[in-house]
């Protein structure tokens, strides 16, 4: 499982002058098969939290524990075989084809050429199989996002086994992975990600769309100004007071959102 303990991130000098607190004392637990949505207003620290967990940013206080071992002791290659990360937007420097981009997801395992069936399944899962021969740069924003999702799914499509034959846990981190998708794809993709979690993958998704979070997540973590405002079951999203605080909304508007979320949860 993933455990975040007293995580704090300060930018700037350590002497305190002009230092900015991005995250302050975050605690978080994510079990296998769980779907956690991280929510909050712009600048609340959602992406920073994700960057810390995925190893992109290592200058933090506190500890992040993956499978009983602090993240600091994981090598990049080991981590990549169990944890896949989907960033918000990926632009390509040179024109790769879609299937080549997806094959890169197998790079941590070194079996790009021997896992074609798996890559195909991942591409079908993200609904990009028909685009496989297209040039990535020529795709629309939403199509590019789906290709990235296929790459990320291919990376942890099946669990690695350790020396004793025990299946190693898998983690999937998503950073607003549906921001450029149409509603139909938003829901179908999140449903596929949910099925993935059903296989025992721990899924943490930074999300912008509260309603999508309401109908998808098991649990939510709501951040505000770098601190945990609330953490608990998805039903929290039906709490108008909480939404008003989290997003600095007017009460009537917050009530409308809460009601809408209630509807999504029942759906």
């Amino acid at each position: 499982m993933l455990n975040v303990k007293h995580l704090s991130v300060n930018l700037g000098s350590s002497a305190g002058r002009s230092s900015k607190t991005l995250l302050n004392d975050i605690n978080l637990h994510l079990g296998y098969g769980e779907k956690l949505a991280v929510l909050g207003a712009n600048g609340a620290g959602k992406s920073t939290l994700l960057k810390c967990i995925c190893g992109e940013f290592s200058n933090y206080q506190g500890d992040i524990i993956l499978d009983h071992l602090s993240l600091k002791f994981w090598s990049g290659a080991e981590r990549a075989r169990q944890m896949a990360v989907m960033p918000q937007k990926v632009e390509l420097a040179f024109p790769f084809r879609v299937d080549q981009v997806v094959a890169l997801g197998r790079a941590p395992h070194g079996d790009e050429l021997h896992s074609t069936a798996l890559q195909r399944a991942a591409m079908q899962c993200a609904d990009v199989w028909h685009l496989r021969r297209r040039n990535y740069s020529g795709l629309s924003g939403g199509e590019q996002q789906r290709v990235q999702l296929a790459r990320v799914l291919a990376q942890i499509w099946r669990a690695e086994k350790n020396a004793d034959g025990r299946e190693l846990p898998r983690y999937l981190l998503l950073d607003e992975c549906t921001s450029a998708l149409d509603p139909a794809h938003q829901h179908s993709i999140m449903q596929r990600v949910g099925e993935f979690a059903g296989q025992g993958v721990a899924v943490l998704a930074v999300m912008h769309d509260i309603s999508l979070a309401a109908c998808w997540a098991d649990r939510v973590l709501i951040l505000r100004h770098g601190e945990v405002l609330a953490c608990g079951a998805v039903e929290l999203l039906a709490d108008a007071q909480l939404l008003a605080e989290a997003y600095a909304l007017d009460m009537p508007l917050a009530q409308r959102y809460a009601q809408q979320n209630m509807g999504w949860m029942q759906a």
Binding site: C54, G55, A80, V85, P87, E91, L92, F94, L104, A107
Partner: peptide, 14 residues
């Protein structure tokens, strides 16, 4: 090859 997708993604790929 991984770097074609950016430094962040190359880091994620280990």
């Amino acid at each position: 090859n991984a770097l074609l997708l950016g430094e962040a993604v190359a880091t994620h790929l280990g």
